[in-house]
Design a protein around this nucleic acid. Structure first.
Lengths: 216, 216
DNA sequence: GTCTATAGACGGATAGAC
DNA sequence: GTCTATCCGTCTATAGAC
């Protein structure tokens, strides 16, 4: 990921992949400060370009968001499709959780963004149709695969806690948000030191198993 | 709560408690749509007054928020103080979780607001000092009481999952957001039917116990 | 592909009459 | 306590030059 893919004759450290850089900076700022509190001016400034340049690469502010949520949602869809085709066994639940954890861990910055902009996910006003609205139905689908249809309250609650406990843990114990600058502290004290990725994966999976062990 | 406290000689159905009504409507809208996406104009409109009227009761938009987060935060502070004065036993953890669940359940609308406006909680820009910033440190304090100081990664992750799994569950399985209007559906299908409050409390406490059973 | 300049809307907040 | 009227800032988005 560090080495250049083809030569690397960058002029002043930055190539012509402006589009990707916009996505990267936007995701970072949206996740950190929130979508509404981040203006295009701020994104442009940080990139050393002007607002108008952004509109060459994306047709709107929301379009930037959609560009990096698409991959994430596609992964969830794939997981759901897989889960729905499996028998409703404990083995399926375990594997589903394992894969889900992988997705969250891989896309933890996107997940952080979704988490910190929940308000967007839940209410769409006036024609605006961001892709986020697809988020909740996806979580519901996962819940139903885990708990099964028409499951008792206890099962549904535990499945919910598993999914969200796992998500929150992955997010809090993953320092991906820290850009190249803030290396030291930003991390809440109670979380330190951060476990490494594989250890975290194991701990989180165990915990999710504990929550879903005895449910339908 | 339904009966009037003193006579009830309301003119046209609404008393002079405008301030309380502002809080109520604002909380509802902020929780539903998000803080930034809710304008003072919208709040005023729904109350049948003008923006300027709001400024008689509150000095700013943020001031409205602070007015209803204060109680909630005070309860958390009380809980933390209590927890810090207890021995680090399993019994303490159990009771702490029980009380925490009570707080979240009682103030579930406020909690929903905090959850859906995470971006505000995490980044404060330019002098603005909302009380939210106090939220994360409080959660950290609770985590430390549960896991103990210098606990291994597994303990800290499980404590985190317990706290956030519990919170998310309480929020999702509590229909308090539904105003007087939308009585039927708004609730995500996978959660229905909603368990009653006491059943939910029991289920959630059990789950939290499972997660914190074997940790420091 | 990136810039300057600007349109057009809407936001929070205040002054002062009633 | 509530209203009308208004100020001033910022935002998204676009037009058109280079």
């Amino acid at each position: 990921m560090e080495a250049a893919t083809h030569g690397g004759h960058d002029a002043h450290g930055r190539r012509g992949d402006t589009r990707a850089r916009i996505q990267q900076v936007a995701l970072e700022l949206f996740a950190e400060q929130g979508y509404e509190r981040t203006s295009l001016r701020e994104i442009a400034e940080r990139l050393g370009v002007t607002k108008a340049a952004l509109y060459y690469h994306f047709k709107s502010k929301e379009d930037i968001v959609n560009s990096f949520t698409e991959d994430y949602f596609a992964q969830l869809d794939e997981l759901i499709a897989w889960g729905q085709g499996q028998p409703g066994t404990a083995r399926t639940t375990h594997e589903l959780l394992e894969r889900y954890i992988g997705i969250v861990l891989d896309g933890s910055e996107v997940f952080r963004f979704l988490h910190r902009n929940q308000a967007m996910v839940h209410s769409t006003q006036e024609g605006k149709a961001h892709r986020f609205e697809e988020f909740r139905p996806k979580m519901d689908a996962l819940l139903e695969i885990i708990a099964g249809p028409d499951a008792p309250a206890r099962s549904r609650v535990r499945a919910t806690a598993a999914l969200f406990g796992v998500s929150a843990s992955c997010m809090f114990f993953t320092p991906e948000s820290l850009g190249p600058d803030s290396d030291a502290k930003d991390i809440t004290p109670a979380l330190q030191p951060l476990p490494d990725r594989d250890e975290l994966r194991k701990i989180v999976l165990e915990l999710a198993d504990d929550l879903t062990r005895d449910i339908a």
